[in-house]
Amino acid sequence: MPELIAPAVERYDAWREAHLEWGPGRHEDGFGLRPCDEVDSPDGFAAWVARLTRQPGPAGPADADRCTYRWIVAHERVLGGIALRHDRDEHAQWAGHLGFGIRPSARGRGLASWALGRMLDEARALGRDRLLVVCATGNVASARTIERCGGVFEGIGETRFGPTRRYRITLYG
């Protein structure tokens, strides 16, 4: 049975295995990777995990992401990641409030739908009533996942990474 867990330095080897399976490029949605993140060394990985898990506000640094990151883990293997962006800012308006990715060898098992459903519960707990979720226009699997989880297609949008399908998910108490 999969679990959603917070990013943890203890999972370096398992995360790195998943990262290597994806190969180079910007495509690991849900992990919060930035071009400046150096995740190939234990120290760089630890710094990245620290950024993902620190909280903004009075108890944490002002530059912390307002985002909840979770890894999808089963049998000690990192199978994917999912992120819930808390803000309604410009970034969320093009990237969406939820981002997710499943490593290639774990696709087709319903993991993304399962994880998305769990993160909708977290969004409700934050008091959110509507979320924007986007995927690349050619990503049929993600579009189906979003639709299965209640996403209603709103149209095609343009981002710096190309055209995206835009969905709204309405949450009820």
Rank of each mutant, 00 (worst) to 15 (best):
A46F: 09
D43I: 14
A46S: 13
R54C: 13
R54S: 10
F31C: 05
W48K: 02
H27G: 15
F45T: 02
P42N: 03
H27S: 04
A50D: 11
G57N: 01
P42L: 06
S41T: 15
V39T: 07
T53N: 08
G57P: 13
P56E: 02
R54E: 15
H27E: 04
Q55N: 01
G32P: 07
E28W: 05
W48Q: 03
G57T: 10
G57A: 07
P58S: 15
G32K: 05
D29I: 01
A47Y: 02
R54D: 14
E28H: 06
H27F: 00
E38C: 04
R51I: 08
A47L: 13
R51M: 11
D40R: 10
H27R: 09
A46I: 10
A50E: 14
V49L: 11
D40P: 01
G30P: 01
D43S: 15
G30V: 03
P42R: 13
P58M: 12
A50M: 11
V49R: 05
R51N: 10
G57M: 09
F31I: 01
A47T: 08
A46T: 10
D29Y: 09
E38D: 14
E28F: 03
D43Y: 08
A50S: 14
C36Q: 13
A59V: 12
P58K: 10
G44Y: 00
G57S: 08
A50Y: 01
D37N: 14
P35V: 03
H27M: 10
C36A: 15
A47S: 14
L33R: 01
F31H: 07
F45H: 11
P35W: 09
G44D: 07
D37F: 06
R34G: 03
C36F: 08
C36L: 10
P56R: 06
F31R: 01
H27N: 12
V49M: 05
G57I: 07
A50T: 13
D43W: 11
P42Y: 05
A47W: 03
D40M: 07
A46L: 10
L33S: 00
P35S: 06
P58F: 12
Q55I: 15
A47N: 09
L33A: 02
V49W: 02
F31K: 00
P42E: 05
A46E: 08
G44W: 05
P35Y: 01
A46Q: 07
H27K: 12
E28P: 00
L33I: 14
P58E: 13
P42T: 05
D37P: 00
A46C: 09
E38S: 09
W48P: 00
G30L: 06
C36M: 12
S41C: 11
A59P: 00
A50H: 11
D40H: 12
C36G: 09
T53P: 05
D37H: 11
D40T: 13
W48M: 12
V39Q: 04
R54T: 13
A59E: 12
A50C: 10
G30W: 02
A50N: 12
G44A: 02
P35G: 05
L52Q: 14
D37S: 10
G30K: 02
W48H: 06
D29W: 09
W48V: 02
T53F: 00
V39W: 04
E38P: 08
F31G: 00
T53G: 09
D29A: 14
W48F: 15
R51S: 08
L33P: 00
A50K: 12
A46N: 06
D40W: 07
E38H: 12
A59S: 14
P56C: 05
W48S: 01
